[in-house]
């Protein structure tokens, strides 16, 4: 139990090291269509930005994004549909601490999703991590303590927090 945060932090740092920062977009970018990414927000109530521990999903039905933004959400300081924009989602409370997700889009296409903030209660990390890593971090942490299992059941709360923050970032970008 005492070791878990250490395992997690080490995993995150290791991944960030492997993936680099913005230097290797091929490794940290996903050709996610906006439709797919929107669906990723399975739980997210797009609650106001805050660090409250509001549980994900309790009022999700009422929180359907109202942004029916047209294709070009007036990108700042640049013209053209392919202008790059970035937004950071709300800080959500997940079971290891606080996290928020940053999304970069070019036109209507999401080009990069990363972790803007990750605070596991002692180690404040601000790293660019493969968007697929965070939901798997806890699975890796769990599997690390038991080398002979092939998966973990009942460990999806991190991805729920991830999706909630992702959804709010998408809303800010007018990507539904």
């Amino acid at each position: 139990m005492r070791r878990t945060p250490i395992v997690l932090a080490a995993t995150a740092a290791g991944l960030a090291g492997v993936l680099g920062f913005h230097t290797k977009p091929a490794h940290i970018s996903f050709g996610v269509s906006s439709g797919t990414a929107t669906g990723a927000a399975a739980t997210g109530a797009s609650s106001p930005a805050s660090t409250s521990g509001a549980s994900a999903g309790t009022s999700s039905k009422a929180a359907t994004p109202t942004t029916t933004a047209p294709a070009h959400a007036s990108p700042p300081a640049s013209a053209g549909a392919s202008a790059t924009r970035t937004a950071t989602g709300v800080v959500v409370n997940y079971n290891y601490g606080l996290m928020s997700v940053k999304v970069t889009a070019s036109g209507k296409k999401i080009t990069h999703v990363s972790i803007a903030m990750l605070d596991d209660g002692g180690n404040s990390l601000s790293q660019s991590i493969d968007q697929q890593s965070i939901p798997l971090l806890e699975q890796q942490a769990l599997q690390a303590q038991s080398g002979s299992i092939q998966g973990v059941s009942g460990a999806s709360y991190t991805s729920a927090g991830f999706a909630q923050s992702l959804q709010s970032a998408l809303s800010k970008l007018g990507l539904k």
């Binding site: 806890e138 769990l142 303590q145 998966g151 973990v152």
Partner: peptide, 26 residues
């Protein structure tokens, strides 16, 4: 297949390990 069941009271720990022949959901 051996699948761990997450401990709901303690993130990062397992409450059980299960031999799974088909499906498991939590």
């Amino acid at each position: 297949w051996r699948i761990g069941v997450a401990d709901p009271a303690s993130p990062g720990r397992l409450a059980a390990v299960v031999d799974v022949a088909g499906a498991i959901a939590t």
